[in-house]
């Protein structure tokens, strides 16, 4: 179970003079069960990249392999790929169209040609796993709040039973409470449903808490690819391309420079607290000796 991207290039408006290269020579391997964050500012190519993963956009050159199969092969089943690699777009609530929430979630599985019973079962399961209150299943999706609509939209993709779930800035436009809810939900789905999750975001702080691996995109290329700690060590370079490491990273470096030996890899408040207390204690102990 893996997705491999081999020297993928993509440019808009191939023939005309306005050629824009959106992706440059991307090589990536995404393993089963990973929780990945793709970070980059607007126009870095991150949205274009994820649309390649389920075949919505076709690479200008290079190959993409899903479980060892070339997705650009003529007899490759694109529809199956789209059900296996679920893609939740930015502001996914804008795609809702049915008269009831339940019907809307049924749309995906119905397109897969499943029988009515299976479709409904899947919709039910999907709505449950996003924690949507059962009492509202048959209401109009247009009356819901922003955060709730988004849950329904995510359930709509989840009902396809994807093996890989990609979310393009799932927290855009939500308030902090809504943001935390959605991120917690995604993290829970990753654990409970045992699916690969790829989270696209422009916020380092949001992502640092959840993911195991960060891919930083800049101007169409992969700039860094590693664990959050490895990536945040490059905070000075991240800053140059308009991305910021978590505030804590800066603080730890500042303390370190001023002579307090704290752990530079701390990225969350918890880690930072432990490290600072520990460093102060050592400091104290040294003084007493």
């Amino acid at each position: 179970m893996s997705i491999i991207l081999d020297k993928v290039n993509f440019s808009y408006s191939q023939e005309t003079a306005y050629k824009i290269q959106a992706l440059k020579d991307i090589n990536l391997k995404i393993e089963d069960g990973e929780f990945i964050g793709i970070i980059g500012h607007t126009g870095s190519g991150k949205s274009t990249l994820i649309q390649h993963l389920n075949g919505l956009v076709k690479a200008t050159s290079g190959g993409i392999y899903f479980n060892g199969q070339d997705i650009y092969d003529e007899d490759f089943n694109m529809k199956e790929l789209r059900s296996k690699v679920g893609l939740v777009f930015q502001y996914p609530e804008h795609q809702l169209f049915e008269t009831t929430i339940f019907d809307d979630v049924c749309f995906g599985p119905k397109n897969l040609g499943l029988d009515k019973k299976t479709v409904e079962l899947r919709a039910y399961e999907a709505l449950r796993s996003v924690g949507f209150p059962e009492a509202l299943y048959f209401q109009s999706p247009f009356d819901l709040s922003g955060g709730q609509k988004r849950r329904v939209a995510i359930a709509g993709v989840l009902a396809m039973k994807p093996e890989v779930l990609i979310l393009d800035e799932p927290t855009a436009g939500l308030d902090p409470a809504g943001r935390d809810e959605i991120l917690d939900l995604i993290s829970k789905m990753h654990k409970e449903l045992a699916i690969t999750v790829i989270l696209v975001s422009h916020s380092m702080e949001d992502v640092a808490k959840y993911v195991d691996r960060i891919i930083v995109m800049n101007q169409g290329s992969v700039m860094y690819d590693g664990t959050p700690k490895e990536v945040f060590r490059q905070y000075k370079y991240l800053e140059e391309v308009g991305l910021a490491a978590p505030q804590v990273t800066y603080l730890m470096h500042e303390l370190h420079e001023k002579g307090l030996p704290v752990n530079l890899d701390a990225t969350t408040v918890e880690e930072a607290k432990e490290s600072i207390l520990c460093a102060l204690r050592n400091n104290e102990a040294k003084r007493l000796q």
Binding site: E205, P246, Q247, V248, L251, V269, A272, K273
Partner: peptide, 11 residues
């Protein structure tokens, strides 16, 4: 009130 306290203030 579930407001978003900045990391620094929280720490």
């Amino acid at each position: 009130h579930r407001l978003d306290v900045p990391q620094v203030t929280l720490l």
